[in-house]
Structure formats: C-alpha cells, structure tokens
Amino acid sequence: MSLFYLVIFIILGYTLSSLLAVGIFFLTNRGIASPSDIAGSKDSLLMMQAIVATGSFILPPLALQIFEKKSGADYLKLKTKVPFTIIILTVILMFGIAPFIDWTLKVNQMMDLPAFLDGLERWMREKERELAELTKHLMTMKTPVDLAVNLLVVAVIPAMGEEFLFRGCFQNIITRIMKNHHLGIWLAAAIFSAIHVQFLGFFPRMFLGALFGYIFVWSGSIWPAVAAHFTNNATAVVIAYITQSQGKSLDSIENPSATIAQATLSLVFALLICYVFFNMTKAKREVSND
C-alpha cells in the first residue's frame, strides 16, 4: 500500500508540475509552448526541469511521509542529527570512489550486445547521444550566475529529490517487502539507474545508487546521502564551468580514462572509508535499533 500511495503521489506530482512548468513558459513567453520552442531555450529547459523535478521527486516523498505519519513511518529521517565529520567523510568518499566509477563507465560503454539485440543496442546508443547533446546544451555556462543556476538545478534539486525518493522511499519500502536491507538497497539502486534511461552508464550509476543507499542505512539520516549525491553532481558542473571559462569546449572534457590499477586503488580506498564510516555510525545504529 505504501508503494501504491507513492506511485499515485509521483503521478500527481509529475502531472501538476508539468502543467505548471508549461503554464509559466506560456505566460513568460506569451506564446504557444511547443516542444521546439522549449527545446531551443536553455533557460526554459532549466526552469521546467527544476519545477518538474521538484514536483516529481521532492514533493511525493514528503507527501508520503506526512500521509503515513500516523503509522509512525519516518522514511527520510530528516531530523536525525549527523556529526559534521560524517558529512566530511562522505565528501572524501565520493572523491575517492571517482576513479572506480570512471573505470566502470568505460567498461559499460564498451558493451556489445548479441547480434539479435542489435536494434536494442542502436536505440540505447541513440538515446545516449540525444541525452548527451541535451546535457551539453544545459551545461553551457558563461557567468557565475549560470554556474549558480546549474548547481541548483543539476546538483541541489536532484540530490535532494532523488535521495528522498529512491533511498528514502523506494529503498525503505522494498526493504520492508523483501525483509532484507541489502536487497532494498540494490533494487532501489537499479531502479534509480534505469529511470535515467542512459544504459551505457547503467552500472556505474547503479553502483553509486547502492553506495548512497548504504550511506543512508549506516548514518540513519538522508542528509549524508544527499551530500554524497550533491558532491557527485556538483563536481561535474564545476568542471564544466572551469573548462568553458578557460575558453575550451565541453567536448574537450576527457572521456573515461581510469586504468584498472587506478580503479583498484580507488575501490580499496573507498572500502576503507566505508569501514571507518560504518564504525563511526555503529553506536548510533545500535541505540536506534534498541
């Protein structure tokens, strides 16, 4: 029933926020909001993305939390206090795991499906190309104001919304259904990756989603997972801004280049950080369980 209510809230949130976004576009541009009109305007795309992401990802989890408050459900654990050292450790973890994620992305992009799935592979690669072009369009930044807007739309809102929805709600609900938090973490991570419809980056995104899931479970609060997600997205935005401020094209940003040795060292370092993280939050988990 919780899953049913969540899906209903997502459908309502997406529908209403989409209508609101198109309505605002219509009012501010005094014209018909056709797909081509919207697609050609970066500011309109960012505005619509911010509104729809808020309505689809942030508000439904909050609505579910309020709706099921009587049953004692606390999906997001928003009020759980987290030591600042945990947030710092989370940021270090994200930078440490980056080469491993980079390597898995390179391996994922080398994917070659069997001959009878050629049509599916062509569709996946075409979809990847379209989304890459859209991302490049949105990530065009010339001023600090552009940087601030992109950090809000590409880093802050997705970090909060996707963690609220996938870790806070889907992961918790799946864990209750399966009675196993590992299954809850990995199934929610797989859904989180699939929803992006970028299958040449499916596995690295799923690994990140699982990492966010364990951070949420270990810390007992959604905020470290949000901090991890924000660090990942914000790093990409800042790198894109610096690249363009140096007069270079976004095409000059290197493709995945991590070697297997770098990936191995990165994974070992990340596991050590996870071990420290796990032990630092162990006492709080035991108190919470009691």
Rank of each mutant, 00 (worst) to 15 (best):
F4A: 12
Y5G: 07
I11D: 08
S17E: 03
S18K: 10
S18D: 08
G23P: 10
I24R: 06
N29I: 03
G31K: 12
I32F: 15
D37W: 13
A39E: 15
D43S: 13
M47T: 11
M47W: 03
M48P: 02
M48Y: 03
M48N: 02
Q49W: 02
A53F: 10
I58C: 07
P60H: 08
P61V: 01
A63K: 03
L64V: 01
F67T: 13
F67G: 10
A73R: 12
A73P: 00
Y75T: 10
L76M: 11
K77A: 09
K79R: 14
K79T: 15
K79P: 03
P83V: 03
P83M: 06
T85I: 14
I87H: 09
V91D: 10
V91S: 01
G96R: 06
G96H: 11
P99C: 06
W103P: 01
W103T: 00
W103H: 12
T104W: 12
L105H: 05
K106F: 09
V107S: 07
M111H: 01
D112Y: 09
L113W: 00
L113F: 09
A115M: 14
A115C: 12
F116S: 11
L117I: 00
E126K: 14
R129P: 02
E133A: 15
L134Q: 11
L134R: 09
L138I: 08
M139K: 04
M139I: 01
T140W: 13
M141P: 03
M141I: 06
M141W: 06
K142G: 15
K142T: 13
T143C: 01
D146I: 11
D146G: 08
L151A: 00
V154D: 01
V156G: 08
V156W: 10
I157R: 05
P158R: 11
P158F: 05
A159H: 04
M160F: 14
M160E: 02
M160P: 00
G161R: 02
E162Y: 02
F164Y: 08
F164S: 04
R167V: 00
Q171T: 03
I177A: 14
M178S: 15
G184I: 02
W186F: 09
A190C: 11
I191H: 02
A194K: 09
A194G: 13
F199H: 04
F199D: 00
L200K: 06
G201R: 11
F202D: 05
F202L: 15
R205L: 02
L208V: 01
L211F: 01
F212A: 05
Y214M: 13
I215K: 10
V217L: 15
V217I: 15
S219I: 04
S221K: 07
V226R: 07
T231G: 09
N233I: 02
T235P: 00
V237F: 08
T243S: 05
Q246T: 04
L250S: 02
I253D: 05
I253V: 11
E254R: 14
I260W: 13
A270M: 08
L272W: 12
C274T: 12
V276H: 06
F278V: 08
R285H: 03
V287W: 12
N289W: 07
D290Q: 15
